[in-house]
Amino acid sequence: MSILEVRDLKKVYTSRFGTQQVEALRRVNFTVEKGEYVAVMGESGSGKTTLLNLLAALDKPTGGTVLLDGVDLSTLPEKDVASFRRGQLGFVFQEFNLLDTFTLEDNIYLPLVLAGRNHKEMAERLEPLARWLGIDGLLKKYPYEVSGGQKQRAAVARALITDPKLLLADEPTGALDSRSTDELLSLFAQVNRSGQTIVMVTHSVKAASHATRVLFIRDGEVFHQLYRGKDTNEQLYQKISDTLTVLATGGEAR
């Protein structure tokens, strides 16, 4: 069963004085099945981040619909959007987006506190998660006191602690060194194997090569997609590279 369904999604930005219109997304269609790990690839400016913002209901589409687990996000009243977002979605960002006024522990608790859970339950949820992510010794530290990789793992913990239906990641490896990148990607793969659905926006071939499916976006449309099938990461990596070359040299969709 599909957990995410995107139909004819369109987003047009109008400049401040309404004189110019930029079409960020023209006609995007795809579905994500439960338990899938989908990477969305594209050049900068291809509309990746716009797409992610629409999936996260941070922005309203100009046309088309996003159905998450059968719920049309655009029909949700404004006041429910935020609670929907923190209940059903988990986010991992390139810049971590941890609040520097909180310890890692409190950053991870944030969505649960907002949902009004009690402290005992929160602690019970955090304990195994933190151990699994290898940050159990860092919980009392502040974001600026730990490394980028550790920050990103805390951000992953924050995204997962609500048990979201969908994990959205926006260039999660963009600000990490290569070792931390490897660690994070294997972590994502592990998360995915435990049944978590992931949609990740990236332009890193390496990151995308860990996914089970790769979508390519060009000029506001889904241009192509690759399935992993039985490929290893290395094989998928090669296929992605080839596709990107075709994209860059201006090939047409087959």
Partner: peptide
């Protein structure tokens, strides 16, 4: 900056 982050993790503008 903080405003943006809090919004992304699910606080409403009013909160």
């Amino acid at each position: 900056r903080r405003f943006g982050i809090m919004q992304k993790v699910g606080m409403t503008g009013r909160e």
